[in-house]
């Protein structure tokens, strides 16, 4: 079996894996990152979104062997001493109900704001196009992203 070396939330995780192992299963089973969830398992919902070398990807749609030699950030790698501003904003604005889509929503938001620190509402909705939420109707999620953008401009946190 191929051996993969993937940096997950700053720690190198090395393991022999089957070529067919999906990255999301590697993260959950081999790297013990249970914060990253399997949602639809059809590339649609985005609940499994992580950052691969800093860019958002759906970890159910990547093989672990494809990520060999690369760096992954999961929802568990965002916070330092304090929560990441995006996590803080989702809490503050209650950008969730059941919370299942939230790890993916947060990771997509981190990517969106890194590319566009001042998104319009339309840009937020378009930027979260790959993440489905079946509870909220998205209103509080959009508010959370707007609040996160404010927090990340510095100052108001």
């Amino acid at each position: 079996m191929p051996e993969v070396r993937i940096t997950v939330d700053g720690d190198l995780v090395t393991d022999e894996v089957e070529a067919r192992l999906l990255l999301v299963h590697f993260l959950r089973s081999n790297a013990n990152k249970l914060g990253t969830v399997v949602g639809c398992d059809t590339s649609s919902c985005g609940a499994c979104t992580v950052l691969l070398n800093g860019r958002s990807v759906k970890s159910c749609s990547i093989l672990a062997v494809q990520a060999d030699g690369n760096s992954v950030t999961t929802i568990q790698g965002l916070a330092g001493e304090e929560w990441h501003p995006v996590q803080e904003a989702f809490k503050e604005c209650h950008g969730l109900q059941c919370g299942y889509c939230t790890p993916g929503m947060v990771m997509s938001t981190v990517d969106l704001l890194s590319e566009n620190p001042n998104p319009t509402e339309e840009e937020i909705r378009d930027g979260l196009h790959g993440n489905l939420c079946r509870c909220t109707g998205y209103h509080n999620i959009v508010k959370s992203v707007q609040h996160a953008a404010e927090l990340m401009k510095g100052g108001s946190k």
């Binding site: 985005g46 759906k58 749609s61």
Partner: peptide
């Protein structure tokens, strides 16, 4: 095409 995550890959 698709969504941001898929366009990244």
């Amino acid at each position: 095409v698709a969504d941001p995550q898929i366009r990244h890959r």
